[in-house]
Design a protein around this nucleic acid. Structure first.
Lengths: 216, 216
DNA sequence: AAAGCAGTACCACAAATGTGGTATTTATTA
DNA sequence: TAATAAATACCACATTTGTGGTACTGCTTT
């Protein structure tokens, strides 16, 4: 019997998947949450699942952040990330943090079912699109040891804050005023953000921020 | 017996909702598609539903475009839009095009069920957040007859094309080169886009384009 | 035939973003 | 404690974006 917990802020999605999973005799959905904090509380009460299905695009706490927290405290949990989009930079980072799967929401239910079974038994499960990138990443890493910079270093809290404000259509000047910072500082932050995200301009920044769930 | 068709490119979502709806004796899901064109083909074959549930954020054809097409050809179909986000400009426009409901995906299944029943019997169904804006819009309209400009005039095909390219991180110069246009023209387009979308800068443009499903 | 829209193109100036640096302070962690 | 990361701040210059206009053409629609 595989104990499963679901987290997704799309309530209909959550209920739909729950309904589908509940029909399967091997699975037991012990929790379904639209909110990461509630899920954390549930875990703290001793309800530890075999498999945790986490949506990436959530507010205010994104799935990635949640996954990292959960795995720090309960490394035995098998985490599968669910996402609408597919972001390359992410995969690398998530792999290191110990997740067992990354599925796109365009995936059908049978695949999700198979994925849960797989990871519950120590396996991995990635959508084909994701798998491709992982393999590509591998060969990149082994062949070219030089390029070590573009690792998408984790964004800091401050940087994420900036991203949100940029998303609110504020200019650097306005952000500086709002945060009581020098305009220079704010510009430096944005520069660093763009480097970390590997984007060329504001358009790219906002687009990626959206995909990563920093703005909504 | 209410005949229902679902369209959503999140396959799991689609299958989940389908599973939930199928359990209800009053509903008959006659079609579920991840693709708007397939759905149109299905309608053309004479499969006309009472209620059509349409996701807004789809590629390459967005739900809004689909809704307009469907309603032009089959005005008797009751269309409910589903969306992750909630966009004010949209609601006004959609209301005019004849849709019967607009629900957020954060809505629970019971509400969706109720909404389907309502619209199938000639009613309307909007999420509370949406309803609020509709009412606000009403009072705005009746009180201030002056301001008639900010109606979010429909974006043209060319404009949408530009939006996509801006989303690809291209500058105006690069876009001009790619489309064999003068840089002036491209700038004019962007200016018009920003006015129509009612945004202040690139950040706002991309954000709204994302919400409206123009870029992915 | 006149009006309106979509697409094209131009101008000039103001404001903001983007590039490529350096540097200090304060925590945190190896 | 030495090294690192995060947050702060500065400079100069190049490029792009944003504002506020005008105007011509071709195609629909009234």
């Amino acid at each position: 019997m595989v104990q499963v917990i679901l987290v997704d802020d799309h309530k209909v999605f959550l209920q739909g998947v729950e309904a589908l999973l509940s029909r399967i005799i091997d699975f037991n959905v012990i929790g379904a949450f639209t909110n990461g904090l509630e899920m954390m509380r549930f875990l703290a009460e001793g309800n530890i699942p075999d498999v945790l299905l986490l949506d990436i695009e959530m507010q205010p706490i994104g799935g990635v952040e949640l996954a990292e927290n959960v795995l720090r405290q309960y490394p035995e949990v098998n985490v599968i990330m669910l996402s609408t989009y597919f972001n390359e930079d992410f995969v690398q980072e998530l792999m290191n943090s110990g997740i067992k799967g990354y599925l796109l929401k365009s995936t059908g239910f049978p695949e999700i079912k198979a994925a849960i079974t797989k990871v519950a038994h120590g396996g991995f499960a990635f959508s084909p699109e994701v798998m491709e990138v992982i393999l590509k990443g591998f060969s990149n890493k082994t062949e070219t040891k030089v390029q070590e910079k573009n690792e998408f270093g984790q964004l800091t809290a401050r940087e994420v804050e900036l991203i949100r404000l940029i998303g609110e259509e504020l200019t650097m000047k306005e952000i500086a005023a709002q945060l009581f910072l020098s305009e220079h500082t704010v510009k430096t932050h944005r520069k660093n953000i763009m480097a970390k995200m590997d984007v060329k301009n504001t358009a790219g920044l906002i687009k990626k921020a959206f995909i990563l769930g920093f703005i909504e």
